[in-house]
C-alpha cells in the first residue's frame, strides 16, 4: 500500500472545511450543554422533592443511554411529530442535551463548593436572589468548574464525529464521502487522524494549562 502524496493537495482543504463544521458544532453544543446544565443545577437546588427526583431521573436516563441512539431519535423520530430541523441543528441539540447531563453534575458540585459564608454575606448585603447568583455565586463557580468544563468540551469535540451518522458533513463525514468516491481510504483516514489528533492534543494541553493555573 503506498501513500499517494499528491492526493493531500485535494484532501487537506476538504478536511479543513470539515474541521470548521466540527468546531462550529462542538462550540454550539457546549453552549447548549452549559446553558441547560446550569439551568438544571440551579433549579434542582431550590426544587422540592418530587421535582428533584424527576430531574435526577431524566439526568440519569440521558447519561445512561448512547448518544448515537439519542441522535437517531432526534433525527428520525422527532420530525414525525414536530417541525423538521436541519441536521446541524439536530446534532448540536443532541450533543448539547447529552452533555448537559454531565455538566449539571459538574455545576452542582461547583455550587456546593462555594462556601456557605458567601450566601450569608449576600443576605447581609441585602442582595436579592438574582443578584446573589449573578454577582457572587456564578463567578466563583466558573473558576471552580472551568477545567472540568474544558475537559467536557474535548469530549464533545471527539463525540461530534457521531454527527456524521445523521448526514452532518463535519470532518469525519467529509472523509467518509471523499474516501467513498475515490477509494483513497488510506490517505484520507490517515490525514483525518493526524488533524483530529493535533486539534485534540492542543485542546487537552490547553485545558491542562488552565487546570494548573486555576489550582
Amino acid at each position: 500500500m503506498n501513500f499517494d502524496l499528491n492526493s493531500i493537495n485535494v484532501i487537506l482543504p476538504l478536511l479543513l472545511q470539515g474541521l470548521k463544521v466540527t468546531v462550529i458544532a462542538s462550540t454550539g453544543a457546549v453552549i447548549v450543554a452549559i446553558a441547560l446544565g446550569l439551568l438544571i443545577a440551579i433549579v434542582r437546588r431550590s426544587a422540592g422533592r418530587a421535582l428533584r427526583l424527576a430531574i435526577d431521573t431524566v439526568v440519569t436516563v440521558v447519561r445512561s443511554t448512547p448518544l448515537l441512539v439519542q441522535l437517531y431519535l432526534l433525527f428520525y423520530v422527532l420530525p414525525l411529530y414536530g417541525p423538521a430541523m436541519s441536521p446541524m441543528t439536530t446534532g448540536i441539540l443532541g450533543l448539547g442535551i447529552h452533555y448537559c447531563a454531565y455538566l449539571s453534575e459538574v455545576f452542582r458540585a461547583g455550587i456546593d463548593a462555594v462556601p456557605k459564608g458567601q450566601w450569608e454575606a449576600a443576605i447581609a448585603l441585602q442582595f436579592n436572589r438574582l443578584q446573589t447568583w449573578r454577582r457572587l455565586i456564578i463567578p466563583q463557580v466558573v473558576r471552580i468548574v472551568l477545567p472540568q468544563v474544558g475537559n467536557y468540551f474535548i469530549s464533545i469535540y471527539k463525540h461530534s464525529s457521531l454527527l456524521a451518522t445523521i448526514t452532518v458533513v463535519e470532518i469525519l463525514g467529509t472523509t467518509l464521502n471523499y474516501a467513498g468516491e475515490t477509494f483513497r481510504y488510506f490517505e484520507a483516514f490517515t490525514l483525518l487522524g493526524i488533524i483530529y489528533f493535533i486539534v485534540g492534543f492542543s485542546l487537552s494541553r490547553t485545558v491542562g494549562y488552565l487546570e494548573r493555573r486555576l489550582a
Partner: peptide, 19 residues
C-alpha cells in the same frame, strides 16, 4: 485520548485491511 473513538473504529476498519 486525543482522537475520537468513532474515528478510531473507522480507521481500523478501513485502513488495517489495506496494510
Amino acid at each position: 485520548r486525543s482522537t475520537s473513538s468513532l474515528v478510531q473504529i473507522f480507521y481500523f476498519f478501513y485502513v488495517l485491511p489495506l496494510v
